[in-house]
Amino acid sequence: MVLYHAIQTGVGVDGHGWRRLRDVPLFARLPDADLVALWNVSVPRRYAAGEVLRMQGEPADHLLVLLSGSTAASAATAGGRVVRFGTWRGPCALDKVALLDRAGHTATFTAVGACSVRAVPRARFMTLLDDSAAVRAHVLRLLAAQARAQQDRLTVTMTLPCEARLAAWLLEAAADSGPLVSLPGSQQGLADLLGVTRVTVNRALSRLRGDGLVRPAPDGRIELLAPELLAQRATRHS
């Protein structure tokens, strides 16, 4: 009776809105009863901007479900260099791969702003993976997409100069945000993402600004002035 009431009202047995899990792509096709069960077995967490959700290499005992907010993923190389992978916005499930191989979290996840998270025990996630064809298919698509993206990024890093990489990143970011693009934390964060130094990024931004392709906005974002010309720069090899 309690479970029936929860499904009808959209409020979990613990008094919270389990329907928020429906917006997470990984869980989008699960029956309501499974969503209620997931909600009630998960642990709620809130993080302020700058707080670390998980550290690279830490045991992945829970699946982190980011309900709202954004988190940046980064990793340190053996030589101490920080590599930034990008920013993830909720609702989404973070670092699913780490739960599969048990080798620890693949990156350090840091809250960009205030974040609301549900932590699902790994055992429950693995059971879901075994029982749900939809969840298995989603994870397989994710792994395939990650492998392809990694290959594409390696190709870009090895063949394109910084200005072309920067132009490509600005266009990709603008596809989600519009002509005003926020840097991933700072110029240093952008440098880590592109695999270059902050000085190199600063010079590339200056060239794009000098050519009238972008300009700094008063709030610190970058405004794209000529996306079609920026697209030409994104494919330039020299």
Rank of each mutant, 00 (worst) to 15 (best):
V214E: 06
G189S: 11
T197F: 02
P184R: 12
L183D: 07
L213N: 04
T200L: 04
S182A: 15
V201W: 02
D211H: 14
R198P: 10
T197K: 02
G189M: 13
D211N: 05
S186Q: 11
V199E: 08
A204M: 06
L208C: 09
G185W: 03
R203E: 00
L180H: 13
Q188F: 00
L183A: 12
P184Q: 09
G195R: 04
V214W: 00
T200Q: 07
R198N: 11
L213H: 07
Q188N: 07
L194A: 09
P184E: 05
L208E: 02
V181M: 11
L213R: 02
L193W: 01
R209S: 15
L208T: 15
L205F: 07
G189F: 08
P184G: 15
S186R: 10
L180S: 13
S182L: 15
A191M: 07
V214C: 07
Q188A: 13
V201R: 01
V196W: 03
Q187V: 15
S206N: 12
D192P: 04
G210E: 09
R207H: 05
G189A: 07
T197N: 11
D192F: 03
G189K: 06
D192N: 15
G189C: 13
R207M: 08
L180P: 00
Q187C: 11
L205D: 04
S186F: 07
A204G: 03
G212C: 09
L190S: 04
G212F: 10
L208G: 05
L213D: 02
V196I: 14
A204C: 09
G210W: 08
L190F: 07
N202A: 15
S186C: 08
L208P: 09
A191S: 08
N202G: 15
S186T: 13
V214N: 00
Q187W: 05
Q188C: 01
G185H: 01
L193Q: 09
G185L: 05
G185I: 15
V181C: 09
L190M: 12
G212R: 10
N202Y: 03
A204W: 03
G210K: 08
R203S: 10
D211L: 08
Q187E: 13
T200N: 06
N202D: 14
S182T: 15
R209A: 10
L194C: 12
R209V: 14
R209Y: 03
R209C: 15
L193E: 10
V196K: 02
S206E: 13
R207L: 12
T200D: 08
G195T: 08
R207A: 13
V214M: 10
V199I: 11
S182C: 13
V196Y: 04
P184N: 08
L193H: 12
G195E: 01
G185R: 07
R209D: 11
D211R: 13
A204D: 03
L193K: 03
L213K: 07
R203N: 04
G212E: 04
V214R: 01
R209L: 06
G189R: 09
